[in-house]
Design a protein around this nucleic acid. Sequence first.
DNA 1: GCCAACGTTGGC
DNA 2: GCCAACGTTGGC
Length: 494
Amino acid sequence: MRPAEKQGWTSLLTETVNLFCHNGLRYQHDVKVEGLLVITLDSKDIIIVNINNTHTGRNDRVFIHKDDYDKTCLMPKSPPRHPAGKVMQSQSVTLVPQLSATAMSPPQTKTGPRYVYIPAASIATGASSQPMVITTASAAKTVSNTSLVSTTASPSSSATSVKTTMRSLLTGLPSTPTLMPANTSTHKSSCDQPMPILQKIKPHSSGSGDHVTTKKIKVQYIDGIMIVDECPDDFSESNFSSASYNNSPMTSFSSSHPTFVQLANNKQSSTDATPAKRMKNDSVSHSTPTTTRMVAKKSTTQRAKLIKRAETAKSATNLPPAEEIGKSNCVTSSVDEQKTAKDTSSGKCNNGEVDAKGGTTEANISDYEEEKSASETSDSEYSDPSFTLKSKKKSKLWKPGFKVRPKVNKRRAMFRRLRDRMKKKKTTASSNRKARDTRKCGSCEACLLKEDCGNCRFCDDKVKNGGPNRLRQKCIKRQCIQLVSCEFTQEMSS
DNA sequence: GCCAACGTTGGC
DNA sequence: GCCAACGTTGGC
Ligand SMILES: [Zn+2]
Ligand SMILES: [Zn+2]
C-alpha cells in the first residue's frame, strides 16, 4: 500500500472509531479516545494506527444497542481475488458534501472533511469482477437517495440519524430497507453484497442536497481491507480501462501489492539450489527462504528490495515441490522454523514507529523507491558482461545477455564438502576405481528422471538451450537426492 | 573456504 | 567425434 493510501485508510479508520465513540457512548463533558492499533497484512505489511482524540461535548443517548449487532455481519466480505493477487473489485463512487446538516448533527470539534460510510446497498454494484465505475450522475442520485433515507428515517431526531448511520457503518446494511430504491431488489442479501460507500461530509455544510457537488473516490478491497482513493478530477469511466487500471498512479498499489503476496508464498531460495541446498533449506528454515528471513529483520524498504530480487530469481528457477525434499530422509528442525517466525514478527514490529501527535505512522516505506532502484542496480550488475568477465576465468563461450547467477548459497559449499569427504572414503576403499558415480545413487527420484527441467541455471547453461556451457552440470532436478541426504544425515550425526 | 569456470572423461 | 557432466582449480 502506498503511503498516501495508507494515510487515507488510517485516517478513515481513526475517524470511524472516533465517530463511533462520540456518538455511540454516553458522556457529559468530553470523550477521550486513545488506542494503538496494529494491523498486519498477510503477516508482512504493517499498518500502525495511533488514535488519540479528545472530543468535547455531551451525548446523552447511546445509539448502539445489542439488537443492532444481532443481525449484522460486521465487516464486508472481501471480494474475490485474482489468482495473482490483483484486486478484482474496484469501484468509483461519489463524494458529496453533507446533504443535511442535521443528518450528522452531534457537535463536532473537528474541522475538515470527514468520512462516513453510507449504506452499501444503495448503490447497485453487483458482484462484478471487473473494475467498476459509477458515473457521476448515478452516484449522485444514489447518494441522494441514501441521504434521503437517513433524513426521512429521522425527520426530527438527529440521534436516530446517527444511530442509523452508525448501524450502517457497522453493518453495511441499508438502514431502512423499505426506503431503498426499487432497483436494489437484485440484492439478495446485504451481507452478500457489501459495498460500503464513503461519504465525505463537511462538518458544517449548509448544503441542502439540492446542490450536490460530487467528487469521485475509488474504493478497492485488498485482502479485505477497503482502500479509498480520491480520483483525479478528470477521471472518468471511460479511462478506467484495464490499461489505465494498471498504469494509473491511482491504482499502482494494486500492482505493487501482489509483489508482497508473492513473497509470502515464495518458498524458493533466491538462488538456485543444489539438492543439498534444497534439503538444507527445508530442514533449517523449512520453506522459509533465506530472503524472507532477512527481509523480516530488515526494514520494509529492504524487504521490497529483497522481494524483487527473489522474484527475479524465481522467474529463472523452478525448484521441486516440497514433497520431493520430504522424501529425502532429511533431519528437520521445527525449532529453527519457529525462530524464524519469531524473527519475522519482532523484526516487523520494530519497523513501526508511532507518531505521538496522534496521527498515523506506517512502517518506513518511504525509501522504497530508493531501495528498489538499488536493487535494480545490483541486479544489473550481475548480468553485466563486464562484471562477468572480471571473473578469473574468462569464457570464450560467453554470450551477451546470458544471465550470470548472482549469488551462491553457502549450503552448496557444505554439499561439496560432504561430497568430497564421501569421495575420499570411496577412493580409499577402492583406490583404483574411477569415482564417476559419486554423485548419483541411481535409484532415487532425481536419478531416475530422464528429462531436464529446462528452467534451472544448469539447464540454461547447456549449449542445446543456448547457454554458454560454463557450468556443465546436471539439471538441478536430476541431481541425486539420496546421496546428498545420506551425507547430510551422516554429517548431522557426526 | 568457496565457487564459477573449464579440462577432462565415460558412454555412446 | 560428440555429449553430458564429473572433478579440479584459479581467483577471490
Ligand atoms: Zn534443469
Ligand atoms: Zn539418486
